[in-house]
Design a protein around this nucleic acid. Structure first.
Lengths: 95, 95
DNA sequence: CGGTATCCCACGAGATACTG
DNA sequence: CAGTATCTCGTGGGATACCG
């Protein structure tokens, strides 16, 4: 739970499940998140071995985030929980 | 996430997965939890339709908590996440 | 036995400004 | 572009005491 405990963490994971993203892309994909929170969540996910951070030494600077193997597995493990939420929290009629 | 967001909530769910429990039993099954937190978590789980609270009008008073249908389904949906944690957070060697 | 009622505090997260 | 640096505030959770 501590791994996915941040307010925006699963949303970050789902965004990265589609494709690898740059910092600014993630910020745009997650309306309302602040740079500070996005940065700290990415740091924690990196420390937990969930996301990989790749720095390209270019101008302008480019940093790309992607899921690691365990990160992909974590997203798969979250799928049933997500399905449960759609079924029981969101309208049980609107599935 | 808000449904299972409390610090002790999944532990409560797992305790109730075995069998229905009384308040004091849960307190003993969860060393370190305070009565206030246990009570508030149970109230929230009840409001979310996860646990059922049954009051028996006896002396001494008796209250039993059990999982509802959605609660049982939630526990099942948590199983893959639990397995992921055992595999990747706890020792990947010690499975 | 099964809880409330208070008080308290750390920490997560938002707002805002700034930088290499 | 990809972040830091501060500051602030609400709230989740802990400690303790009390109650029908």
């Amino acid at each position: 739970m501590s791994v996915i405990g941040g307010k925006w963490k699963v949303l970050i994971l789902w965004a990265l499940d589609e494709r690898r993203c740059r910092f600014g892309e993630l910020r745009r994909l997650l309306p309302g998140i602040t740079e500070k929170v996005l940065a700290s969540h990415l740091r924690e996910l990196e420390e937990d071995g969930i996301v990989h951070r790749e720095v390209f030494d270019e101008v302008p600077p480019r940093v790309e985030y992607s899921l690691t193997g365990p990160g992909i597995a974590l997203n798969a493990a979250l799928a049933p929980l997500s399905a449960w939420g759609r079924e029981h929290v969101l309208g049980g009629a609107a599935h």
